[in-house]
Nucleic acid binder design. Structure first.
Lengths: 161, 161
DNA sequence: CAAAAAAAAGACTTCTCAGTCCTTTAATAA
DNA sequence: TTATTAAAGGACTGAGAAGTCTTTTTTTTG
């Protein structure tokens, strides 16, 4: 469905969004540990995201990754395409290069609508939207690994971890 | 979306269904050529399908692959799972092993419904259904490669090729 | 300025999927 | 019963994704 790389990317961006701002950045190690992603592999992914201007980075002590306000407006699809290449979702959808609405294969009929609406969702939903959704569900992105739900009573997100 | 292997598998089963019966079997070479699938790779896939009792095979002269009447009742998902392993579609959907309705990630909300209906479609639609669909569209499965539509005026399917 | 901290860069390994080829087994037919 | 035909089985290769490690660059701060 989604490559592991783009799953990592999506989760990381959401985690960084939850846990950072221009004055409180998060490092690769922190993200890797929280989301249980191989650290050095994650570093590469974050670099690609930073090059694509989907997240920000700064070097040196106190450095790390963070989002600025515009970055919350990127659609989720941008993150996927940034790490997996453009059209990665579109081209892997059917497999038949000549399968189309004019020459539909039976699979086309079932998969087509699914892929289209998935694509539309991912293009509409922004990082900010997704974050909002998490908040409404009282879920932190890094909780999804263990399944234990942190109480949202702790006010300062910087205190987590 | 679907692995290339399961795409090969689906198309092959439909092709075999269209072009064979217990007394007129088709060989790997024939399928491979018609569907433009690497022959030796296809052989492996067909073997897995045969072991999974989704298609039949017989050795020796006049041998090859074919479907018997029960085989038309298998849902398409069975073919996919037979070659890609069980739950291949379910588990690749989100990537998060603990993502569930109780602990939904934001992607879950957007992907979930589509994936569920896709999964349901693939579980409902049988090989026979898909074949019916093709017939209604006046399409042969091996036409989907080139896009040129064969006229369905030729009555005996054995005559094709 | 020097030391430390963190990302950036790049070389390298590992694993899985896809694809190829060769040998063996089983079934048919002459 | 022997030759032929086709699947079954297994060894091997290649490409790309995923993962690891080391060195370099940049930035901060004492």
């Amino acid at each position: 469905m989604l490559s592991r790389t783009s799953q990592y990317a999506l989760r990381s961006v959401l985690f960084i969004a939850e846990n950072s701002h221009a004055r409180r950045k998060v490092g690769v190690g922190e993200v890797a540990k929280a989301l249980e992603i191989p650290k050095y592999y994650l570093a590469k992914i974050l670099r690609r995201l930073a090059v694509g201007k989907l997240i920000r980075s700064s070097k040196g002590p106190g450095g790390g990754y963070y989002l600025n306000s515009e970055d919350f407006d990127h659609p989720l699809i941008a993150i996927i395409e940034s790490v997996d290449g453009p059209d990665s979702l579109k081209k892997c959808a059917l497999g038949l290069n000549t399968c189309s609405s004019e020459h539909p294969c039976p699979i086309h009929f079932y998969i087509g609508p699914f892929r289209d609406s998935l694509l539309q969702s991912l293009s509409e939903i922004t990082v900010g939207d997704a974050l909002e959704q998490l908040k409404q569900e009282h879920v932190f992105i890094d909780n999804l690994l263990t399944g234990d739900e942190k109480k949202k009573s702790n006010s300062d997100p910087d205190e987590r971890n």
